[in-house]
């Protein structure tokens, strides 16, 4: 399983700002290594952000999202102490889910 995500969620006015840093190679499948062999594609395909277990954002990503991707979202109706869960699945079926509490 991949390294844990870094999730930061904080209230700014009445909007909860969520920032997520995922640890992932995000290989495009177009790069070549020093021997000229193509490095196989390996990237996050789907991600979900849930607030207290209710999905708020569901996203799909292409390999053109940067290595170690950072995503920022804003959610209304959250409050301090709420639970934010972020999960992703990559093209090799690897997955990761992490939680944070709204500050």
């Amino acid at each position: 399983m991949a390294d844990p995500m870094k999730i930061r969620a904080a209230m700014k006015g009445d909007v909860c700002e969520i920032r997520v840093l995922m640890s992932h190679a995000m290989e495009t499948g177009m790069r070549k290594d020093s021997d000229g062999k193509t490095i196989p594609a390996h990237f996050i395909q789907t991600l979900t952000v849930a607030l207290n277990g209710k999905a708020v954002v569901s996203g799909q990503a292409a390999p053109s999202v940067s290595r170690n991707p950072v995503f920022g979202f804003k959610v209304k109706g959250a409050k301090s102490g709420d639970k934010v869960t972020v999960s992703w699945v990559d093209n090799k079926g690897d997955k990761r889910s992490d939680e944070a509490t709204v500050a």
Binding site: S64, V65, G72, F73, K76, G77
Partner: peptide, 12 residues
Amino acid sequence: NGANADVAVRLK
């Protein structure tokens, strides 16, 4: 469920 249509990403 209340998410703003607001996204920050980093792209290649």
